[in-house]
Design a protein around this nucleic acid. Structure first.
Length: 1130
RNA sequence: AGGGCUAUAGCUCAGUUGGUUAGAGCGCUACACUGAUAAUGUAGAGGUCGACAGUUCAAAUCUGUCUAGCCCUACCA
């Protein structure tokens, strides 16, 4: 990606509008700037420990924009189906072996109308949450009198009830508990039942009283109340905490179904932190099968499930998969729980009442309802059917990550997180509250779960390799359960492999045939809640009804299209309309040409994800999909038909090229690799994906058939398996894998904390009791310049390629890395790129130019084998070398600490502050002095070394510029270097050995001296400025106050540099001269610790000290301060 | 709703274990240089350190609460 753009980008960093004109190309700049052509060699031998680190990719960029440059980790496996599957499967086998893998259920969004579970992603699609009006009910739960609840009763015959609010009355028959907030204050209120007028005492959160009991009614007299009165008197009798209510039992509200266990442990009050008093009564009606929170609360408190046992002893919910009450709920048996599930005409009937309302009315009749009213709220809907979803228990395979929770937390502490807070906070906290990993996905295309089970689920087998699968298939063949082994040895189609099953030859009958085929098979496979048309006749019926309805009501565009295609009018091709393919309905299909024609309406425009998924799926099934919009069909019919004909031609050719049925795209997913090129080891029929894998029947040790669990594995499992899958471990590369695991370093967007970072960690801990990575950088995001997230809808998205074209990859990258730490969000501002281009690259470029200009003029020869020893170079040379190696040390420290931002800033500072601004400036005249003497040679060699090393250090963040710099520097001596096998022989800076820190080259005393010089010069210039004395005007002398001899000696060593400010001499003055005016300031840090409270006064006193007093203090080392008589040492 | 990150000059960011007058670059203003010259240097203006409270002799820094922006998770009776 990056190298592909390199050529065009290289000099783009120079492209301000003016520069662009002059130096549009690298060639131009070389002409203009006189590339340095002479021979040279590096100044010093260097140790060869590490290679220059790889280029730093601005990961923030990749994660921040809507499209990415990186390869998605989840893609790793798909290129090699077999390897991908089984590296995944291997990881899966181990968790099973370790009993990490279990089947259970969770409460998930479920669409009874479509008969399918929905992912949260599907729920978040636009338009899924809709404002709907439901009948909400406040129900009254009658408290049982016992020791625990005695405090609620003031009279023996008192009718005490707890109020709980629900927007889904249909869940009330499934109520098993009430949940209260332990810290919330509740109140008992004496009043009358609003619907029956019976006296009653009600319990609800104190904060919610005003919502149900108008304040004025408190004054009403109880004696005056008559049944039917609008205003009902009430009196708050007592208040108490939620925790006092915990454990109180109540009578089952709607006693249709119960069990001894429930009578014992159910129908009581539970504590729940998540309960609020924002709405309702502060008491939550808890029905575990229909709410995730409810389920958790019940599990944590040991409340049994409510439901009807099936023949295997499982407790099924009181609502079936079609969304109807089971027969046991006698009064409502067979009724859909949501009105929307009834056909429109039924809903339109005059006396139609939603089930929710019927339930509410029944409660009202039984004196169990306190309030019934319509309630408007947003509720999720299924994007396929547009009907409301239910939260419903669905079977799933889980990895019991919670069992490894502690070990994961423990090992996480050994990982170096950048920033640390993500490791301890966001990730660490989450690990501590880790839930089990729901591995199941009900999609069609993905990595199948490699678990085979007998029908009664007493025996199961998890397959870990093709080899093992093949052996098991052999057993199954021997047992007569399979006809042949598609995974057997030998070349294609030989050695015992049976030919692939003949696919149905298309057409409507074929679809139904497959449906029946699936039905039989899944019946044999035993219980599975994965409802699709293949496993569920209901679902199939739904699809067929849907198709019929669609045919009856075509859209105008569909009608036009059908008029053109029907009865083989169109080039004699047979088209079908409204044809079901798996779970989808295609608008028009040619089975002969495997071509789907879709007409997109406005609905699809707001559901691009849906269209994408559809297309992917259909293509996976071997179809080509062509889309037209409504308006295209209606307004440009000839063009549309022409386009269609072209596509048919393409399809024709594609199909003709397919030599065997196994590689030809075929309908219904019964063809080949479902859109993939078969891998080398893949044989016809040996595909590990659905649907083939579902044809494999294995035999259990006791001789029973075992069929595959129909679920797919969560794609996040793929990404977490990356360390193993990339080496195809454990089947190959065992040694390589060992060398590379765990990873030294990974980086991804911080939003992957619960994604990639987690899946890698979880699998490594559970399978290998190891971390998967030792260091991790979680990158922040790229925000726009106002700090807002980039999004298409806001229109504040920056196009990376345009940015790179405009400013160059290096300037962009340098800006991103140097500007903010990788984990901080970056406020992306193009002017910042311009700034780093001018500031850093501009300065470095100018410095190089300066060097090249004079090197060419002088014919400077760099001789790698003969450099001037540092001892023979000037103070200034040794200083910049010392600074350079200080930089190298800082750089290594920062990079080793995963702080590229600090590293880049250190380089910037060196180049600008020291190299360009001080060294080059002061060395200029050495370069333009006539002869090539030793001093001039030293200057060249020193500057060469600085440029070379700076190039190396900036190589990871500015790969193109650094390489350009290095090549220009070394090109003239490349041949010599290669011949002599010296360090600069490499063709690219990225191949050189990175300069290592070398304390022997760092001279701190020298750096300090130079620091004095820099500051004194700066001060001198500042004074000149203030007094308007131009630098051209020579001045007699500088008077420099000195306190000790050491300082004077240091300054003396850099005196020539100071005199360059056009001053004749430098004179030192001490306090004896009387010229100095001293003032004293307290050292807060040392004195503060000793003086404490008196610090302020002393500081004031010190600031008033006179010259004499200070001198005295300096001599004696101590003095008295009158305030508190504290003896001070200097 | 829960968890996390961030908040310092007009902009982008430093600010070590609390300690003297809170720093840098860019931008702005003024000036200098004229042998790096469509380059460079110097100076100036510019800040209630998001708000409030607390701990301390002393808070940008430590503690608490709040506000704003962003991220993740969960979507609710």
């Amino acid at each position: 990606m990056w190298s592909a753009k390199a050529a065009g980008i290289r000099m783009a960093y120079l492209s301000s509008s003016r520069w662009k004109k002059n130096w549009a190309s690298p060639k131009r700049i070389l002409e203009k700037k006189s590339r340095w052509r002479n021979t040279t060699r590096p100044a010093a031998p260097r140790s060869c420990a590490t290679k220059t680190s790889g280029m730093i990719l601005p990961g923030k960029w990749a994660t921040g924009w809507t499209w990415t440059i990186r390869t998605s980790p989840s893609k790793t496996n798909t290129s090699n189906p077999a390897g991908g599957c089984f590296s995944g499967c291997t990881k899966n086998e181990r968790p099973t072996a370790n009993r990490f893998c279990t089947k259970g259920f969770t409460i998930q969004p479920y669409s009874p109308a479509a008969g399918t579970g929905l992912s949260t992603h599907e729920l978040n699609m636009p338009g899924c949450y809709k404002e709907v009006t439901d009948f909400s009910t406040v129900a009254m739960f009658k408290v049982k009198r016992e020791d625990r609840s005695a405090f609620l009763f003031d009279a023996d015959d008192e009718d005490v009830r707890i109020l709980a609010w629900t927007t889904t009355p249909w869940t009330l028959p499934s109520n098993v508990a009430l949940t209260v907030g332990p810290g919330i204050t509740y109140a008992k209120v004496r009043t009358f039942s609003p619907y029956t007028g019976a006296p009653v005492s009600l319990v609800l959160a104190k904060d919610r009283l005003p919502a149900y009991f108008p304040e004025g009614n408190a004054a009403l007299a109880f004696e005056d109340y008559k049944e039917g009165d609008k205003n009902i008197p009430f009196k708050v009798e007592k208040t108490f905490q939620g925790k006092d209510l915990v454990g109180v039992h109540f009578e089952q509200l709607m006693p249709y179904v119960s069990s001894p266990e429930l009578e014992k442990d159910g129908f009581r009050v539970l504590p729940g932190d998540w309960v609020t008093t924002e709405d309702g009564t502060g008491v939550v009606h808890t029905a575990p099968y229909f709410g995730a929170d409810d389920m958790r609360a019940c599990k944590e408190n040991g409340v049994p499930m409510i439901g009807v046992p099936d023949d295997k002893g499982r407790i099924l919910p009181l609502v079936d998969k079609q969304g109807r009450f089971v027969p046991e709920v006698t009064d409502f048996a067979g009724r859909y729980v949501k009105a929307e599930y009834y056909p429109a005409e039924v809903q339109a009937e005059k006396d139609f009442k939603p089930t929710d309302l019927l339930i509410a009315l029944k409660l009202k009749d039984e004196n169990k309802a306190f309030r019934i009213e319509k309630y408007k709220h947003s509720y999720p809907h299924c994007w396929r059917t547009d009907k409301p979803v239910l939260y419903y228990p669905l079977d799933s395979w889980f990895i019991r990550a919670s069992a490894a929770r502690e070990r994961m937390a423990e090992l996480n502490k050994t990982i170096n997180w950048k920033p640390a807070s993500t490791g301890t906070g966001r990730f660490g906290v989450w690990l501590e509250n880790l839930q089990d990993w729901n591995l199941s996905r009900s999609r069609y295309w993905g990595v199948p779960l490699p678990i085979w089970r007998t029908e009664d689920e007493s025996e199961e087998l998890c397959i870990g390799s093709i080899e093992q699968l093949s052996k098991e298939v052999d057993k199954a063949v021997a047992a007569g359960l399979m006809e042949g082994n598609p995974f057997g040895p030998g070349p294609l189609g030989e050695g015992g492999a049976t030919p692939p099953p003949t696919p149905p030859q298309g057409g409507r009958g074929a679809v139904e045939g497959v449906a029946e085929h699936r039905e039989v098979k899944s019946a044999a496979a035993g219980y599975s809640d994965r409802i699709s048309f293949k496993t569920d006749p209901e679902r199939w019926k739904f699809l067929k009804d849907y198709v019929r309805a669609n045919r009856k009501n075509p859209t105008p565009a569909e009608k036009i299209m059908w008029d053109a295609l029907r009865d083989k009018q169109f080039h004699g091709i047979k088209f079908r309309r409204q044809h079901a393919i798996e779970d989808f309905i295609a608008d028009f299909v040619s089975l002969e040409y495997r071509l789907v024609v879709e007409i997109d309406g406005d609905v699809h425009d707001i559901q691009p994800e849906y269209d994408k998924y559809r297309t992917e799926f259909l293509e996976a099934c071997g179809y080509s999909v062509i889309r037209f919009t409504n308006s295209e069909v209606q307004n440009e019919r000839p063009a549309v038909l022409k386009k269609l004909w072209q596509v048919v031609q393409v399809q024709k050719n594609t199909l003709a090229k397919a030599e065997s049925p196994s590689t030809a795209p075929l309908p219904l997913g019964e063809g080949s690799g479902v859109g993939l090129t078969p891998g080398q080891e893949s044989k016809p029929g040996a595909d590990l994906h659905r649907p083939y894998i579902d044809d494999i029947v294995l035999v259990s040790p006791s001789g029973k058939p075992m069929r595959r669990e129909l679920d797919l594995i969560d794609v996040w499992f793929d990404s977490g398996s990356m360390p193993y899958a990339q080496w195809h471990y454990p089947f190959e590369n065992q040694e390589k894998w060992k060398q590379n695991f765990p990873a030294d370093f990974i980086a991804e967007g911080v939003d992957q904390t619960r994604g990639w970072f987690y899946t890698l960690h979880a699998i490594a801990v559970m399978c290998f009791d190891s971390v998967a990575y030792k260091n991790v950088v979680s990158n922040g995001l790229v925000l726009d310049k106002n700090g807002e997230k980039m999004s298409k809808s806001k229109g504040n998205v920056v196009n990376p390629f345009e940015t790179i074209d405009e400013h160059g990859a290096d300037a962009t990258r340098w800006y991103m890395i140097s500007n903010a730490a990788p984990w901080d969000n970056l406020k992306f501002d193009e002017s910042g790129i311009v700034e780093s281009r001018n500031k850093f690259f501009g300065t470095l470029f100018n410095t190089y130019n300066f060097f090249a200009l004079y090197a060419n003029l002088d014919g400077f020869k760099m001789d790698e084998s003969n450099v001037l020893p540092y001892s023979k170079r000037s103070e200034l040379d040794r200083w910049i070398i010392s600074k350079l190696y200080s930089l190298v040390a800082d750089y290594h420290a920062a990079m080793n600490d995963y702080e590229p931002t600090k590293a880049c800033r250190a380089i910037e500072n060196f180049v600008d502050e020291h190299l360009s601004n001080w060294y080059v400036r002061l060395s200029r005249r050495r370069f333009w002095k006539g002869e090539m003497g030793e001093d001039k040679l030293a200057a060249y060699q020193t500057l060469f070394e600085c440029l070379m090393v700076v190039g190396q250090l900036s190589a990871p963040a500015a790969p193109f510029f650094a390489d350009w710099l290095y090549r220009n520097l070394t090109a003239p001596i490349k041949a010599t270097a290669k011949a002599n096998n010296t360090p600069l022989q490499h063709d690219s800076v990225h191949l050189t050995d990175l300069t290592q820190p070398d304390p022997s080259k760092v001279d701190m005393a020298l750096e300090r001296r130079m620091d004095h010089a820099q500051r004194i010069c700066s001060l001198a210039l500042s004074i000149r400025k203030k007094d308007k004395l131009r630098v051209r005007l020579p001045l007699q002398k500088i008077l420099l106050p000195v306190l000790d001899g050491a300082f004077q000696a240091e300054v003396e060593a850099v005196k020539p540099l100071i005199l360059e400010t056009n001053v004749k001499e430098l004179e030192y003055i001490t306090d004896t001269s009387g010229l100095l005016k001293k003032s004293a300031k307290a050292n807060f840090k040392t004195l503060g610790a000793r003086l404490g409270k008196n610090m302020k006064e002393v500081a004031v006193a010190i600031s008033y000290l006179t010259n004499d007093e200070i001198s005295n203090l300096e001599k004696t080392g101590s003095m008295f301060i009158f305030l508190k008589m504290v003896k001070l040492k200097k």
